[in-house]
Write a protein that binds this DNA or RNA. Structure first.
Lengths: 159, 159
DNA sequence: AGTATATAGTTTATATGTTAACAATGAGTT
DNA sequence: AACTCATTGTTAACATATAAACTATATACT
């Protein structure tokens, strides 16, 4: 359905660039709401699951520092502090120290966290596959390319 | 640049559906950061500007109710309460009453709000045009179509 | 008219995000 | 060793988002 109907707008868009940008925005919002609804059933948030995904696939046995997490999530490191605070309180992850640099916290999943993650992941994979259904691999790669170009445009204009 | 480099990931993605989904997510994040940086220079937030945009183009002379705003922004109506609280405190908008229904608040831009909006809008248009540069109208319409399909998939799976 | 139901807005508790200021630690230079 | 600068994490103040419970009002129905 077009954005005009989904958002109950009275008037459509004059500029296709603007419409495209809002489509990116609101598609993220839709995906996020769907993910949130799922994760709520298992007592997680989508952001917390993302942390666990990064710890699992990017951290391996070594874990990840809070700055590494903030880089991989494109968020501020102050945000990671409170996020890990909450996840530590729920015993999903633990802060450990890094020998050789006393500034750094290394974050690792707990056994409990890993159990929950391994239960959630295949179900979440299904949700993603559903959301991206009906496209060929080529179409998805084309979409990725377009979005990379948009981000490149944005980064260029920041300078 | 590919997401793997932008997020400093050690490993790429096994599943192209997952990569596509994250590209949608992080492109929104990039666009939002760029918009935020701009709006900060004129004392607004991107969300507040969006409210003013909706009041201007969708509200016309009649303004919009808080529920209408929440529909058009895909957010909860509780969120609109505090958002309008802050905007009213900054004298950007005003709550007025709707004759015939005492439950409803009608939100309208103030003179001050309109002045700021009219100053910001052409500059913001430029930023959007820059972000969406390098694509033909057809390519943008194709992108819109793909994202509409994704949202349709998501809405279908919610039922 | 009276009752049930729906709608609009607010409040509270919570999660996620920002920036700015700060403390602790590490690294490089003289 | 002492000084400077960079990096890591935390804290505080704030903006934005949710869900759930609440109040006030409107509407529909018998």
């Amino acid at each position: 359905m077009a954005l005009k109907e989904e958002l109950k707008l009275k008037r459509g868009f004059d500029v296709v660039e603007h419409e495209a940008m809002l489509n990116i925005y609101y598609t993220t919002a839709s995906l996020k709401k769907r993910a949130d609804a799922f994760f709520k059933t298992i007592g997680l948030t989508d952001v917390q699951f993302n942390v666990m995904m990064l710890l699992n696939y990017q951290g391996g046995n070594d874990g990840l520092s809070q700055v590494q997490l903030s880089d991989m999530m494109l968020v501020n490191r102050a945000n990671v502090t409170t996020l890990i605070d909450r996840m530590e309180k729920s015993a999903l992850v633990a802060r450990t120290s890094l020998s050789g640099d006393r500034r750094t916290n290394i974050i690792k999943m707990t056994v409990k966290g890993r159990k929950i993650f391994e239960k959630a992941e295949p179900l979440y994979d299904q949700i993603i596959k559903q959301a991206m259904a009906g496209f060929s691999q080529l179409e998805l790669k084309k979409l990725i390319g377009v979005l990379e170009q948009v981000r490149m445009n944005v980064n260029k204009s920041e300078k």
